[in-house]
Design a protein around this nucleic acid. Structure first.
Lengths: 197, 197
DNA sequence: GGCGTTATTGAACGTTCGTCAATAGAGTGT
DNA sequence: ACACTCTATTGACGAACGTTCAATAACGCC
């Protein structure tokens, strides 16, 4: 009855399978609450194989976080266009919709990024930077955002505002609609930057 | 040469000693990067004693976080007064100064709260709520903040904005002065709430 | 159908968390 | 000073976990 037949996949397939499993388990709990035993059992492989592919548990965690971050960046790409405000609105709408759809997974990503070690935080930080840069690398944006240390500080804080607000809203919308939420986080940027001038 | 003489303290003293050690080690690294072995060795006690006082490593972590949160709340008490704006400014000034002084420890607290489990997060959440409530339980505040779901959402997001901005500033002030920082985070609240109306 | 490459295994090791009966320090009464 | 009690404290033990590595077997190729 014990299915002792080992299934041999190509490295790419196996890696893919393990990463997807990681994302799935990630959604429910922090990764260091899950033992390698449980991971390998759930994947139907031996403990050793996980080490063969990711070197260590930490390596596995980093790979999964990297994958989640890439997903986020890919699925929230703003449309091509010249109007900074429109781009911002589109980008935030995509972001909000992504968080709504991947609610649990996204929360885990943020938690992992916050609580993880230096390497994990760096991965998330890079994704964040990519998203911000991409939105603001638009001709004509200088009129809205003059590049000063103060503005950079405020924009970074604004990102924290957006993340926290959207996640809180996901837990309990409390009557606030999706469109209102998008409006709130979009309007917040000019409002904050305005006070900084 | 081995000082095998065990020192017997009163439960309160021992508890205090261990909590202070926890705060000290906390500042440098996350608590689950430190083994009970190292903790007990540094405290000059046996492993068993730590379990006697805190039940588990998780229990110890929670106690330390609770202590850190209490410190934060205690040291940022706003002055008695009726003017909401003045109270807000005073409270934020105290908060900024606290973070400046306890930079590392405070960062660890926030990281522990973000990355920790449900119980740890709840402890920090309570402290946060206490600080917010205390600032806004002022006669006449209704003129500034009408209590709607939308406002609550924004105020919560604003707290995230403040935390992130102050911590980022601590890492690299980039020419922004302390007073400017206080001004930024203070002005941010009316700016954000204004857009929500 | 045999062969070589390499994906995969499982047992073994060191470390860390957590438990518990045994031990000894400090106050108390005589 | 001494014995006695209470309980703070210990240290050895077991289970669980991360990690390593030589052995194994599945698949593509000739």
């Amino acid at each position: 009855m014990t299915a002792t037949t080992r299934t041999r996949l190509s490295p790419d397939e196996r890696r893919e399978q393990l990463l997807e499993l990681g994302l799935r388990l990630f959604a429910g709990s922090s990764i260091d609450e899950i033992s390698i035993d449980r991971l390998s059992e759930e994947a139907g492989i031996s403990r050793g194989l996980l080490y063969h592919y990711f070197g260590s548990k930490q390596g596995f965690r980093e790979a999964v976080v990297q994958r989640a971050a890439d997903d986020l960046v890919a699925q929230t790409a703003p449309p091509e266009g010249d109007d900074p405000i429109a781009k911002l609105l589109a980008s935030l709408t995509a972001y909000v919709d992504y968080v709504i759809a991947n609610h649990q997974g996204y929360r885990s990503l943020v938690l992992a990024a916050a609580g993880g070690n230096e390497a994990v935080r760096a991965i998330y930080e890079r994704a964040r930077t990519r998203m911000i840069d991409r939105t603001f690398e638009t001709p004509g944006v200088e009129a809205l955002l003059v590049d000063t240390p103060r503005t950079r500080l405020v924009v970074r804080g604004w990102v924290a505002f957006v993340e926290d607000t959207v996640l809180t809203w996901c837990d309990d919308a409390n009557g606030v609609t999706r469109d209102e939420l998008v409006q709130i986080v979009t309007d917040a940027l000019p409002a904050l930057v305005g006070t900084a001038d």
